[in-house]
Every structure is written in C-alpha cells, then in structure tokens.
C-alpha cells in the first residue's frame, strides 16, 4: 500500500473536505480516487494537493476523478472557458457541427444533463445544443 501512503495527504484532504461517496482503491499499481465534491473550489483544492505530491502529474500512478455535485434544481450554468467562446454543437461530440456559441462568462440555461460530458443547453438567443460540461459551472 505504498501508493496509499504516497497520496495520504490527498486522501486525508478529501476526507476533511467531506467528499461524498469517496472511494480509494489500488489496482495494478495505480491508485483510483473517486468521489463528489460539494463545489468547484473543493475539487480544485484536491488537485492542488495532488500537484504538490506529484508535481506536474508525471508519475502516472493516480487517477483522481472527483466531480462537482449539482443540485437537480439547478437550471443555469456559467461558461468558464479560459477566455474564448464555447461551441454549442448539434450532438454530444466535437465531431458534431457547431450550431452556436456562448460567450465566456455568459450564463445559459441547462436543458438536460443526462450525458456527464456533454450538457444540452439553450442560450439567451434561443440556440439549443450540446456544450462540453467541463467548461460549464452550474449556478446555485
């Protein structure tokens, strides 16, 4: 369980942060940490701890899959791209044609989140399509 020791600071931080459904398993020399964080700041904090233990994530011995919990009642999301517009596509995938764009920082309507990676959204102009969920932050 050397990996569990190496990443103890991370699992401790996850426990302290109250990560829901926290699961830590070692399999074939890789440690898998899954769970759900209450908010984006908690998730980012865990990634900072991870980066301290394994600078620039070069070891390849951990898969940290912590998602941010979203209340089912949430209906809007903010575009959190670095600076560019976010593509809205006809279907879930970058191979799908672009049907519209949402501006960086714009708050758009969430229509359906049944796909974890691609959320169906509607802009204020009424354009509807799929956006990459990692660039959307659910609005409380």
């Amino acid at each position: 369980m050397a990996l569990a020791d190496k990443y103890k600071a991370l699992t401790d931080a996850a426990t302290t942060a109250g990560i829901a459904d926290l699961a830590v398993r070692e399999q074939d020399g890789i440690l898998y940490i899954d769970g759900t964080a209450a908010d984006g700041a908690t998730k980012d904090h865990l990634w900072e701890v991870y980066n301290q233990i394994d600078p620039n994530f070069t070891s390849g011995d951990l898969v940290l899959n912590v998602n941010v919990a979203i209340d089912a009642a949430v209906t809007h999301a903010k575009v959190i791209t670095e600076s560019s517009n976010l593509n809205i596509r006809k279907g879930p995938g970058t191979d799908q044609p672009i049907v519209g764009k949402a501006a960086h920082g714009e708050v758009i309507t969430l229509v359906n989140r049944s796909n974890d990676l691609w959320w169906l959204v509607r802009t204020n102009d009424g354009e509807e399509g799929y956006c990459y969920a990692q660039y959307l932050e659910a609005q409380a």
């Binding site: 074939d28 890789i30 980066n51 898969v63 899959n65 990692q134």
Partner: peptide, 23 residues
C-alpha cells in the same frame, strides 16, 4: 503549466486506466 491542471481534470473524468503524462 497553467493549462495542465485543466487538461488533467478533463481527462481524469473519462475513466482511463492511467494517464501517462510525457508532456
């Protein structure tokens, strides 16, 4: 460096066996 953490977050959510980072 600033983008690395974002990329790693995106990839880790895809349930890979391992991420071999030679960047």
């Amino acid at each position: 460096k600033a983008s690395l953490i974002t990329l790693m977050q995106h990839l880790s959510a895809l349930k890979p066996k391992k991420i071999d980072n030679k960047l």
